[in-house]
Amino acid sequence: MKIVITAKDSYLNNYVDTRFGRANGFLLFDSETKKITFFDNEQNLNATQGAGIQTAQNIINIGADVVLTGHCGPKAFRVLSAAKVKVFTNLSSTTCAKALDDYLNNRLKEAECADVEGHWV
């Protein structure tokens, strides 16, 4: 199983990046190989629009099953849920390591819908 955490940098002990689409990057944890890889999200961080959609698209393309993040807007949520990726939100003041640990020990509750409005207001 592949788990993605939105992250500020490649350190597992740093805090979760609360933004989804414009997160600095994401950490991918593969539960089979136990390997952690960092993906830069520069391209979407700077996108004029649709950053959430593209980030979701990239996460799907790398074959993730689960996303751990701070907040997820309606458009990104729509893409992720269409791909049957499970989304866990509200991880605002936790480290990536703790978020991962909490998930692996079933301490998180899956989000049923986007937890915030889209930003293009």
Binding site: G50, I60, V79, A82
Partner: peptide, 23 residues
């Protein structure tokens, strides 16, 4: 269509294309 859209208004998920009309 997803690859060529400069506005990130399309996404390809499994066996369908999603359109975000507002973008």
């Amino acid at each position: 269509c997803v690859k060529n859209c400069h506005y990130n208004a399309l996404a390809k998920v499994n066996d369908s294309i999603i359109i975000f009309e507002e973008l």
